[in-house]
Design a protein around this nucleic acid. Structure first.
Lengths: 369, 369
DNA sequence: GTCGTGTCTGGTAGCGCTGTCAATGTTCCT
DNA sequence: AGGAACATTGACAGCGCTACCAGACACGAC
């Protein structure tokens, strides 16, 4: 339908004009219809305030009438920059990143910037490679995950002439901007919460062990050591990607070799759910016999039976704020505060509520294994 | 700080070379070092076989030595096409799409194509808008979700001169290629499975009610009607986005108004988990009193207690195959089979295993409400 | 009246790459 | 030997847009 219309226009214009190859509406066509020069029309799209009110209206209606859509490749080539925000994240599977991404996409919507996503698969070498690729295309801005880049990556980031936001965690030397929270402190808060509930023999269950999970483990270890309760045998980790099933399996490992455990700190909520299911399978009563705390506070934690305690992290907000800060910085509005701590919060639920100590029978590691 | 560094580089290079503006390595530099014409160097990157072995090696080493990275904007402008695969999906939150996306990204990795993702938020008008935007940039290929486009969108898709894959479901008039499965048949299979377990008063719990969930409902309705068991009051749906908590709530609604329900078919696994938790909360024994079946077979279904029956769908494979087919088509290798049914499979688990009928007490809708 | 100052507009010259087509060399056949 | 057929290479002319600078014009101050 509208194709005919467009073809019609083309022929008309081919008659009168030099050449309108391929029937595309170019800026020149818009300018002609509006009765201005191409450069004026171009300005309309980049900085409308620079035009007089009359021309602005003329160009606007001409563009709308012709259904003009700018050619981004030509724009990028001529202006030597793109309107692309490159995002490097380690995983697409992980719920955590899908929330962050949603925030990023939401913030980019309505702006002129588009998101170019790439997956480092938790490899800093892969990250380096992607960084090289992306930076060569001169993105308008860059969002990278974490603070553990290779030296080469770090150098490239510092030499890049675009704003950069590091997300997910905080560290001492931001490349540019940084938004996250302390995984170390969050883990310490989780342990402190369990201490407050009267739990002292606290297991740690972790999977994948990427840098942020590692820092949660570090926080757990430090808190346990401070209390004089640390025992290496309480820690069960694996490099395998996380899953609910894995949570059950790791917890089973823990029970098989340790006794007297009264709580489990899970490095994420999937693992926590797996631990809960495993408890149910073995008839271990939560929290009376074993308390459970997860990490991230995914939606299902509030819904489980018993409801599961977790450390809430502001993932969506992190993504959204990162993209917003980045866009502001691209457009020259640098934030007054380049490093933002979004914090965390222990959401106390049934799975770790204080138990009457006397009513708690000891749990044998071999109870049902 | 780093700005100085970069300026320094620029000056150095401006001195020594003809005009290497902005210090960038261009194709011309590579060609010069290799002792060939720029166009030959260009061919090396697009069709290496066209070069003699000697020149191929020379260009390759020159490119590597200079660390040449092609300027995609210039390439896109000159060739009138991009190496971008545009992907339109309705949601980033939904686990289902993150699996599909992972497949798409995995398949695109190692290819020359990059993924441009956009979120329609379940709105076909938003989809139409994004489609117009994307098509103007001449993507190399397009992946769109579902078969329910607006007439305008449909016209644009048919006029687009790039391969297109519709994913997630099957339908009568593919625009080009299509890969998915029948949600209608899958729902019928789920109901048939419950019939086979001796359940006949089967509730339906659905959220968001996008076209695919709607077709699952249609399948449920048709199967129930065929068995003479359909009752509109067994159906609980809402437009609200899905969640585990919502599963609990909708199931509570169902129980509050109906009695004698012996099974629940949940339109997705999150809802099913919510129903399971709600059963546990009310002391309803699964599957003895109520059977549960979900949809998609997310990872946690196999881990729950009891393990949850679900309809497995091949989401990752769908994404992967869609992207692979698309890339093949872009490169001229059209698939012999443009429409692919990836099927589904009812994964029978404890939550719906056949119960001895006589031992099953009736569940009152008001039992715990 | 002249000059500055500021606002708005347009001309020119590419951005870095590739499509087209012509111009070589090279091989193999009759 | 002659020529067709093929393989390999290069020259040229843009792709559609914007950076840069210059010009045009209005306004007020001296």
């Amino acid at each position: 339908m509208f194709l005919c219309l467009r073809k019609g226009l083309c022929y008309e214009q081919m008659m009168g004009r030099k050449r309108t190859k391929s029937g595309k509406i170019r800026l020149a066509e818009v300018a002609e219809l509006a009765g201005v020069s191409p450069i004026t029309a171009s300005r309309f799209f980049r900085n409308p305030e620079a035009l007089s009110v009359a021309k602005r209206a003329r160009v606007e209606s001409a563009a709308k009438e012709l259904g003009y859509v700018p050619n981004l490749a030509a724009r990028a080539l001529a202006s030597q920059r793109t309107e692309v925000i490159a995002v490097l994240i380690p995983s697409l599977t992980n719920n955590v990143f899908s929330d962050v991404l949603r925030g990023i996409y939401d913030a980019s919507e309505g702006s002129r910037y588009s998101i170019q996503l790439s997956n480092t698969r938790y490899s800093i070498l892969q990250e380096e490679k992607l960084l090289r690729l992306f930076l060569a295309q001169k993105p308008a801005g860059l969002i990278v995950t974490g603070i553990d880049q290779t030296a080469e990556s770090r150098a490239m980031l510092e030499a890049a002439d675009c704003p950069i936001v590091q997300i997910m965690e905080l560290g001492p030397n931001p490349v540019d901007m940084m938004i996250g929270f302390s995984h170390y402190d969050a883990a310490r808060a989780a342990v402190a919460h369990l201490f407050a509930q009267g739990c002292y023999r606290i297991g740690f269950v972790g999977a994948r062990m990427d840098p942020r999970v590692q820092r949660r483990l570090d926080g757990y270890v430090s808190a346990m050591k401070e209390a004089g309760r640390f025992d290496q045998r309480l820690v069960v980790t694996t490099a395998t990607p996380t899953s609910v099933t894995l949570g059950s399996a790791l917890f089973a490992d823990l029970l098989a070799r340790e006794t007297g455990i009264d709580a489990v700190f899970c490095a994420n909520d999937d693992l926590a759910l797996g631990v809960l299911f495993e408890c149910r399978r073995r008839g271990i009563v939560v929290p009376e016999q074993i308390a459970i705390i997860g990490f991230n506070d995914l939606e299902f934690m509030a819904s489980a039976v018993p409801t599961l305690t977790s450390v809430r992290t502001n993932r969506y907000e992190m993504g959204r704020t990162a993209a917003t800060m980045l866009i502001d910085a691209i457009e020259g509005r640098r934030p007054e505060q380049p490093v933002l701590d979004l914090g965390f919060k222990v959401i106390e639920r049934q799975s770790s509520l204080a138990r009457r100590m006397e009513s708690r029978p000891a749990v044998s590691g071999h109870a049902a294994g």
